[in-house]
Design a binder for these strands. Structure first.
Lengths: 219, 219
DNA sequence: TTATGATTCATACGTTCGTTTTAATCATAG
DNA sequence: CTATGATTAAAACGAACGTATGAATCATAA
């Protein structure tokens, strides 16, 4: 209720977000979190109940808004189209562009949350995947349907696979500011980090749409 | 030297590979590994020295062969081309196709190792990324150069980014037999798992090449 | 057969983990 | 001011962690 409470909760969420991003769920201890947040060790269990619940709350805080925004973006597209078929690239932008534009919004977690999300999607922890699957269910179904309608000549199974591939490329693009050193050891040109982010969006979009619209494989 | 030793080492590597894949590095304990392998708890430290060294050996066992195979594939392409420019799709197949075809080879880790690899590339553990970066350095440089030559009209920075995107899409495609449930709750058609794997390769290849050859973004 | 080095085994070490408990402190309503 | 409920604090819990130790067991060479 009081100011202190909100502060403590928020400080824990911020520290958890940053540390889970940097070291993973299993690799981050309660003592690290409370230490970085500057709160007592017991505070996490008092405010969130458990480490697992904290992790879920870290995600919920950001995903609720993100997925609502994605729904609104699709609403807007469909209203604008007035019954006409949507452009696949517009759907891709509504889903992935909305996500990527979060990176520039520090109030919504910025790059830190995006990297956490990217890493978590491949992480093995069962409860996290179950939680994310549940959180994503509705928005996923909606976007799948939109792509089915936008690409009526493409088999649905292909669309689902390509959606999956797009998720992977995007996760890497976000999570892997470090993993990129696997591919390149030189800092790409002289781009600073905001430059890099501004350019990442169109770069990734071109790639995603190129993949989505690629000729179908013949088996 | 003796039969028992080789058996024990191999059993530990197999168990470690499977468990690291299923629960991650931090999420897997020495007792789980030795339990599943049916060996004594002390065996890991005796044969490998530490948990970290075991993890490295799990990867080295598979990556050494994979990256040599990738080098051979590129050698063959360049010999065949006899100085002519390589087709980008052939390079992509040499790199990613060679990887994906490991999935069908149980003697080389099969799906288990591929899923472990896919997950680890986004994992945060510092020592793993440092190790993988070192293991991959040479083959990465070689393939980058090949793509630069095959796509002389594309800026090098774009190629590096798109290589990165391709890595992400592939990792997900592999790691995410489970994560796929995020996208779809129905089993795709009636494909069994071998069918799914056979079809995954051309599906992913179409996507990757579509993305690689997509029109360049205009900033 | 015996000696030797490699391997396996049971066990314990010291640490760190997530969580719980109980008391102190705080802010606010009556 | 005092009572009350919420929050913070310090300390401890048992469990699980990775690792180390020293004795038992094994295979092999002399």
């Amino acid at each position: 209720m009081e100011v202190r409470t909100v502060d403590t909760r928020e400080r824990i969420l911020d520290a958890g977000e940053r540390l889970f991003m940097a070291h993973g769920y299993e690799g981050t201890s309660m003592r690290q979190i409370t230490g970085e947040a500057g709160v007592n060790l017991a505070a996490v269990n008092y405010h969130f109940g458990s480490k697992e619940s904290l992790m879920q709350e870290v995600f919920r805080r950001r995903l609720d808004w993100l997925n609502e925004e994605r729904m609104r973006a699709l609403d807007a597209l469909e209203a604008e189209a007035a019954g006409q078929a949507l452009k696949p690239s517009a759907i891709v932008d509504a889903f992935f562009g909305t996500l990527l534009r979060m990176a520039g919004d520090e109030n919504r977690g910025g790059m830190t949350f995006l990297r956490l999300l990217g890493r978590t999607l491949t992480e093995p922890s069962e409860f996290i995947r179950a939680f994310l699957a549940h959180e994503y269910q509705a928005v996923m179904d909606r976007y799948k349907e939109a792509l089915f309608k936008a690409l009526p000549e493409v088999p649905k199974a292909e669309i689902v696979w390509r959606f999956h591939f797009m998720l992977g490329a995007t996760s890497y693009a976000i999570a892997g500011t470090d993993a990129l050193r696997l591919v390149t050891d030189w800092q790409i040109e002289d781009e600073d980090s905001t430059d890099r982010l501004d350019r990442l969006v169109p770069r990734l979009m071109s790639f995603l749409i190129g993949g989505l619209r690629a000729p179908l494989p013949q088996f």
